[in-house]
Amino acid sequence: MDDFACPRCRTTKFQNPSLKMMVNVCGHGLCESCVDLLFLKGSGSCPDCKIPLRRNNFRVQLFEDASVEKEVDIRRRVLKDYNKKEEDFSSLAEYNDYLEEVETIIYNLANNIDVINTNKKIEQYKKENKDQIQKSKGRLGKDEFELEELLELEKQMNEARKQEILLEESQAKKKKVQRKEALIDELMFSNTDAKNIVQSFAQQAKEEQEEEAKKPPQKKTKFSTGIEFGRKSQVSFLPVPTDDGPLYQYTPVTLEPDGPQPPAENDVITKGFMNHVRTETEQERAGGFQTNIACMRALQEAMMGLYHTKKVQC
């Protein structure tokens, strides 16, 4: 990359380490300052092939070979429209045919073969599959989604590690300062030989350092990529088992009172049972607790089991 120069101003990476090569749709490179210069007047064209360019189509060059850059660009443009996924096809062969077609189009465009016809083909495809393209645009591929998630995780990990290192450094610095102060204090107030004190302090510092080096590294439970040991990278849940048994049929609970039938709920309210029960307070009503429930319960319990007898069964 070092001997690579901007085709216009001939600046090399060696002359200007901060040189940034930009590339446009045509696949010809240009350095950043030349791009600025080119668009000073509002619009410009490529100095190599003279086709008119737009400023926002310039990108930082990632590949050494500018033609690769061009192909990547074309690929991106084509795939924007040809965005069918494997799930959209009924068989693998169909999908492979489709991929072949896409590759042909990209190759033709990148190598200037039959450009007019190919472009026409794309236009036609666009027209025919307008709905499908719109739909697919919205849905990010599953792979892309997972990749994004992984990237995000890695970013967080890096951040955390940076913080940790910073903390460690500041602690070490603090310790050093403390040690220095202690040494000075000792030298000022102690009446032993200064040489001895300095020596003993140096010894101590050395020991501490050694100890730190000896400290076992922290137990790792994750790889550097943030994936836990012994676990697959992508935790996928088992599909929820669907029970295809017969549908549940509700059968109302029948009360076996083993005694006289207690009055029904309606009767409790209408026949004056409620006159002999304390009315519920406001708080109780807020909790959904009404007097007739308590009354019903008391009556039920009074009647239930009145016929109870164990003797007959024995």
Binding site: N275, H276, A298
Partner: peptide, 16 residues
């Protein structure tokens, strides 16, 4: 099951 609530029920019933 204690007999205390049944007593309350019986008293309610007798009153009614």
């Amino acid at each position: 099951h204690n007999p205390y609530r049944p007593v309350e029920g019986l008293l309610i019933d007798i009153k009614t």
